[in-house]
């Protein structure tokens, strides 16, 4: 049993209803949702260890599925702790983007609109959900991020100091 998790659901989607569904379920299951309304280069800089699952609307313009599959070890079969599930969100099966997305590795595809329970069954299939919500979950998560930032800044300043001296 794990009490405190910091993994996030990476959501790349524009439609607010779909976003709110995934966010609500992620929060109920103690994951941290991170939403991008469109493709953002910072996505490919995310650490692999921090991401639990990726939800991507394959109908969005300029979406870089190739970069995602390159960056993360995408699961294509049953649940595996080392691989990250990639879920495609789509509305039309015959669209150009859909056909293009099918060429890459992905875990499952989910047609919109979908019911929350269907989304849950999908997540349950590929992720271990032995988590429990703790009271100060958000506070502890924030504290960890702040400490990380402080540490990063300290290292950066040490480098800069050396540079200035040179």
């Amino acid at each position: 049993m794990i009490f405190f998790i910091v993994e996030r659901f990476l959501i790349i989607e524009r439609e607010s209803l779909t976003i709110s569904k995934i966010v609500q379920l992620a929060e109920a299951l103690t994951f941290t949702p991170t939403v991008h309304l469109n493709w953002n280069p910072s996505i490919s800089k995310l650490k692999k260890e921090e991401v639990a699952a990726i939800f991507i609307n394959i109908e969005l313009k300029n979406i870089r599925i190739d970069e995602i599959t390159k960056q993360f070890n995408i699961s294509t079969g049953q649940s595996s702790s080392k691989k990250i599930p990639l879920f495609y969100l789509y509305t039309y099966e015959n669209s150009e983007n859909f056909k293009k997305a099918m060429q890459y590795h992905y875990t499952e595809k989910l047609q919109k609109p979908f019911k929350l329970e269907n989304l849950y069954f999908l997540i349950e299939k590929y992720l271990e959900l032995d988590f429990v919500r703790t009271e100060n979950f958000e506070g502890k998560n924030k504290l960890r991020k702040l400490k990380d930032f402080s540490e990063e800044m300290k290292i950066w300043m040490q480098h800069l100091n050396q540079l200035i001296r040179q």
Binding site: L25, A28, E135
Partner: peptide, 9 residues
């Protein structure tokens, strides 16, 4: 559909 209740520590 929306989550209404969940387990907690």
């Amino acid at each position: 559909q929306i989550p209404l209740a969940t387990d907690y520590l």
